[in-house]
Structure formats: structure tokens, C-alpha cells
Amino acid sequence: MYFFTITATEEDVFILTTDGDVKFTSNSIAFLLDLMVRDDSVGAVCARTFTLGNGPVVWYQDFEYAIGHWFQKAAEHVIGSVLCSPGCFSVYRCKAIREVLTTYASNVNRATDFLTKDMGEDRWLCTLMVQAGRRIEYCAASENSTHCPETFDEFFKQRRRWVVSTLANMMLLLQQWTYVYKYNHRVSFLFLVYQAVLLFATLIGPSSVVLVICGKIHSGLKYSWNWNPVLTLLLQLMICVGFTIICLITSTKTQLTVAKILTFLYAVVMTAVAVGTALQISNDVNGLPGAEANCQNLDSLNNLRIDLEWESVAYLLKIANFPNKKEMSHYSDRYKKIK
């Protein structure tokens, strides 16, 4: 009988993290481990996550997961490093965790620490790994399914944690980009620019929605319901300020109720904006009367019409054979004043 002794280094010890409601197969784990053993600098590998559940909220998350969990992670994997390996189904290298464990387990001393450390623990851990020089990869071949929120209240609470955690960690990464760029050779300047653009687009997202609705950028309720853009802008600013005050002084139940009402109203408004903008684009393309592109040339068209009318009047005066040129000049002067 022969005995073989396999000596594993500390780089070959991994932790599989998963939630209790996640469905996966042994092949999914094998795909994750395959990427881990190829490169010792890889600190974690995440999989491709699908949603489980029924209802409109789940249907929306199907689209959201495809954008945020598939396309965005694939882009980060190609040009740099994935910034969040979700705790629902990922494999972490034990040595990589131990390297940042002291900082990861530190206490919350500031308000910003609460956003980074307590609102999204997995993203905070991945941020520390990237800062330490580790790379986090995405494996699309490894698939898993997780139960996502099916009610608005549960979904709203989850996204309120995820969004602020994402923004806080992205800001932290960009604030220390010189340090990260120096010690992590997988993080390129293009990757940092990509993250800066994503952060900027996220921050201006609410203001972009306000401008689209009020019609300041060739769209909005001005074309659908003929609302005044300035009044629409003021109304939305009042709604934003009012909802901010509600979030500061009222209970969670009241906040969720108001959020439901505003979500429904903005869904109706954005539908009207989309229809009105589509009709305006169709008018502009087809050159229909009333299109904005034609309205801009209305003055020149009116001037051309007046010139043609005056030539016609002059011709008729000539045909009428007025008794003298003085009377003809009298009618000519009167028409020029009208013009």
C-alpha cells in the first residue's frame, strides 16, 4: 500500500461563501477554483448570479443583474479588477483575507466608515484586497441562482444599503488611486478613468432625470403634456427637498410609503416623457409642421413670404395701371410699414 502526502501551501487554502437560499452545482465551484489556482495573486473569484422569484420587482432585477452583475463585472475583469465579489456565492483566498483582516475588523470611528464597513461588508473586503495588490476575477461559466426581494419594501431597503456602499467604496478607491496604481499592477489608468466615469454618471443620475422630465434637453413633459419647463423644474426640486426631509424626520414605514407613491408617479411621468419625446423625434425626422427644427426657421420663412407677397402686390399695381406713380408709391409705402 502506498501513501502519498500532498503538501498544500497557504496560497491553496480557500473559503467558499454562500447564502442559505443560493442554488449552485459542484461544477460552479470547480470553475471558481480553476481561476484561483492559475494565479496566486487572485484574492477572490465571483460567479454569474441569476435571480429567483416572481413579480414585477423580480422582473426589474433580472435586467439589473444582467447590467450590474454580468456586463459591468465582465468589463472590470477585462480592464482591471472586479471591485465586489458578492458574499452570496464566491471563493476567497485565505491568505488574501489574512493580509487585510486587521483593517477589515477595525471599528467604525466616522460616518464614512459606517458607509464602507457596515453597509456592504463584501465590497469593503474587496476594496481592501485591491488596495493590497490583489486581483479579483469574474467567472461567467460558474452559475448560481439566488432569491431576490419580491416586495418593494424589501427591495428598497436592500438597494439603500447597496447604493451608498458602492459610492463610498468607489470614492475611497479614487481618493487613493495613486497608491493603488503603484502597488497593484493589474489596475491600469484606464480602469481608474472608467471608475471615475461610473461614479460621475451615478452622481448626476438624479439631476439628469429632473432635466429630462422638465424638458431642458429637448425632451420631457413640454412635448407630452405641454407643461412649462421652469414650473416642472421647481415642482421636482420641491419634491426632492420634501422627500429628503421625510427621510430625516419620519419613520421607516412612512419613508417606504412615500417612496412607493413617488416611484409610481415617476413611472407614469417617464412613460409620458418617453412617448412625447418619441413623437417629437418623429416630427423632426419627417419634417412635419410644428416640429422644433422647422420652428427655428419660422422667421426666415415669414420674411420670404412677405417678400413674395410684396412682389405680387407690385405686379398687380402695375397691371391695374394707376393714373399716376404718386398713388402707386402711396400703396407701396403703406405695405412697407406693414412689413
Rank of each mutant, 00 (worst) to 15 (best):
S81N: 08
V108T: 13
T103D: 10
L101V: 14
T112V: 15
L52E: 12
I97N: 11
L125F: 00
L52A: 11
H147T: 15
A96V: 02
H69P: 01
G133C: 03
K95C: 04
F89L: 08
D118Q: 14
W59V: 04
A96C: 02
Y65F: 15
K95L: 11
P86F: 01
C126F: 03
G53F: 12
E137I: 02
N109E: 13
A105C: 05
D122W: 02
G80V: 12
S90F: 11
A96K: 02
F89I: 06
V130L: 06
E143V: 06
E150N: 04
F89Y: 12
C126I: 04
L52G: 08
R93G: 10
N144I: 05
H77R: 05
M129T: 03
C139D: 08
Q61K: 08
A96I: 02
E76V: 01
R98Q: 14
F89G: 06
E137H: 03
S85E: 07
V58C: 13
A132W: 02
A132D: 11
I79K: 09
W70M: 10
P86G: 04
R110H: 12
L125C: 01
Y104R: 05
C126Q: 03
D62T: 12
L101S: 14
E76M: 14
C84F: 00
A140H: 01
S106H: 08
L83G: 08
E143W: 00
T112H: 09
F71G: 07
P56Q: 08
K73D: 13
S81L: 08
G53L: 13
M129E: 06
L52S: 12
D113C: 04
A141N: 11
E76I: 01
A132C: 04
C84I: 06
R135N: 00
Y65N: 10
G80I: 11
D62G: 15
L101G: 01
I136G: 00
T146I: 12
G68M: 14
C148Y: 10
C126L: 03
C88W: 08
N107C: 06
A111S: 09
W124V: 03
A75P: 00
N144W: 02
H77M: 03
R135H: 00
T146C: 03
K95T: 09
R93E: 10
V78Q: 13
V100G: 06
Y65W: 14
I79V: 15
N109D: 09
G120C: 09
D122T: 07
G53H: 14
Y138S: 02
A74Y: 15
W70F: 13
L128V: 04
G87L: 05
G120P: 04
V100D: 05
S106F: 06
